[in-house]
């Protein structure tokens, strides 16, 4: 498997929405290379006839009766909000200028 570059890490950080300093990127690129080298050995035993397991205990779609149950009030739901206005979460702009 190809080694991971510093640019790869910068791209992953962008995808994960984490700002990273130059020093962090340098450090993480080195660490990722070592960690990926260690975990890549899963490929040694992952033969094509082995089915994947995503969940240890078999569960199927679980549904409940469609009835209204008590839920959070707007005040409770907003109690941890960094900013709020008119019973809503107030967020920074999500669209840039046209």
């Amino acid at each position: 498997m190809a080694a991971i570059s510093r640019d790869d890490v910068a791209h992953l950080a962008k995808l994960a929405r984490i700002d990273m300093s130059e020093a962090e990127l340098d450090h993480l690129a080195q660490e990722m290379d070592v960690i990926l080298g260690a975990v890549a050995r899963v490929q040694e035993v992952a033969a094509s006839d082995v089915p994947p397991t995503s969940h240890p205990i078999p569960v199927h779609n679980v549904v409940r009766e469609d009835v209204v149950l008590p839920s959070l009030t707007p005040q409770e739901a907003l109690s941890g909000a960094p900013a709020q206005a008119e019973d809503r979460f107030k967020v920074p702009q999500i669209l840039g200028e046209e």
């Binding site: 962090e24 990926l36 992952a46 994947p52």
Partner: peptide, 29 residues
Amino acid sequence: KRRIILGTYALSSGYYDAYYGSAQKVRTL
């Protein structure tokens, strides 16, 4: 941060089968 980056990589297209997919098979084994 280290784990988020590692996980983002393992799930990214092109690497999914080799990493996350293989790990799920190990889980079966």
